[in-house]
């Protein structure tokens, strides 16, 4: 008789004495460290469900890739929009303000005014375009030279072109500055050459909304995809589910591995999406740098920031878990021992 056998019989006897009051078994007779065992079990299911996926690498990779591509699309567009926005903020720095001066203001007063403006806070540069220069420029660029010749005098006003510093290039500050210059006596009309920047930023807003909508649609697609994959897994393991139910497993116990499988699918998909977007940006960054160099710009393509990565991973996890939750809730109830 091996030591195990004698231990086993002693153990069975001990338990059989308590048969009569099974219901009222004292708490101390419960298995030791139940809470600890509960977390150990969760950890074990987490690892073993990954192991199960690992054993069928191709099928797992395919499912994860579909999720990855579906996540990479909105994530990639989001990053590109972020870059466009950053680029246009750079352009706002080159925004100009044109001060059209009243006719008859003397050259000397204009020079004094320019000097005064250069001293203002938020003004980086003031350029003076005299009436003659403006005429020459207009003649050259517009092609209306002939029409101008028929006029008795130069109709164009003198202009002071004002470029704000980068810090003052914010729309609100620019509007403030505009109000201030408009009050100057010699200024007839002050105009902000920023309309197109505003239009661009509202186009970007529209694009962001579009990305959100796209992300919502693809998120639903991921839910359905994960749900369907988990459904097939449940069906293929129905015998196992029946046996564990017969042994006394709770629904929560049976549900657990499927939920963790969905979680892993989501996480793997998100990591694949991360890799996809990062390598896409890597491929684009060299040509973009070259292009911006040709435009004398310091702009270079920005990568995924921490926030985007966290949102990407988080939404992958949540979508995977939710998708499997939906499938498990629907299909596990149907499998009962008969």
């Amino acid at each position: 008789m091996s030591p195990y056998t004698s231990w086993f019989w002693r153990f069975m006897k001990r338990s059989s004495n308590k048969n009569a009051d099974m219901e009222k078994r004292p708490r101390s007779a419960k298995p030791r460290g139940r809470v600890n065992a509960y977390f150990t079990h969760h950890l074990w299911v987490l690892v073993s469900s990954l192991g199960v996926l690992w054993r069928t690498p191709m099928a797992t990779l395919m499912t994860a890739s579909v999720i990855g591509i579906a996540l990479a699309l909105p994530a990639g567009l989001h990053v590109l929009l972020q870059n466009v926005q950053q680029l246009s903020t750079g352009w706002e720095g080159t925004a100009q303000m044109s001060l059209f001066l009243k006719p008859g203001v003397s050259e000397k007063r204009i020079q004094t005014l320019a000097k005064k403006l250069r001293g203002w806070e938020g003004v980086a540069e003031v350029r003076y375009i005299s009436r003659e220069q403006a005429l020459a420029e207009f003649r050259e660029l517009s092609g209306f030279g002939g029409a101008l010749d028929s006029l008795d005098e130069n109709p164009l006003p003198a202009v002071l072109v004002l470029r704000p510093t980068t810090e003052a290039a914010e729309p609100a500050q620019m509007a403030l500055l505009l109000g201030k210059v408009q009050k100057l006596q010699s200024v007839d009309l002050a105009q902000l050459d920023m309309e197109w920047v505003r239009r661009l930023s509202s186009i970007i807003e529209l694009g962001k909304r579009g990305v959100m909508l796209l992300a919502g649609l693809l998120g639903m697609a991921i839910l359905l995809m994960v749900g369907n994959t988990i459904r097939l897994t449940i069906l293929s393991r129905s015998q196992e589910i029946i046996v564990t139910k017969l042994i006394g497993a709770t629904n929560a116990f049976i549900r657990r591995p499927f939920l963790y499988t969905g979680l892993w699918y989501g996480l793997m998909g998100a990591i694949l999406a991360w890799i996809l977007v990062a390598s896409l940006l890597g491929l684009l960054s060299a040509p973009v740098s070259r292009l911006s160099f040709l435009y004398n710009s310091q702009f270079s393509l920005g990568g995924l920031d921490l926030e985007t990565v966290l949102v990407l991973l988080g939404s992958g996890l949540i979508l995977g878990l939710l998708g499997s939750w939906l499938a498990v809730g629907k299909h596990l109830q149907a499998i009962e021992p008969t």
Partner: peptide
């Protein structure tokens, strides 16, 4: 499996499984 379902501690599981397998001669 029945022990894991009931939430037994890992060390307890090992002891009981070996005892049960020993009893049926499959240790």
């Amino acid at each position: 499996l029945p022990l894991i379902i009931a939430g037994y501690h890992q060390s307890e599981v090992g002891r009981r499984v070996r005892a049960a397998l020993d009893k049926v001669g499959l240790l």
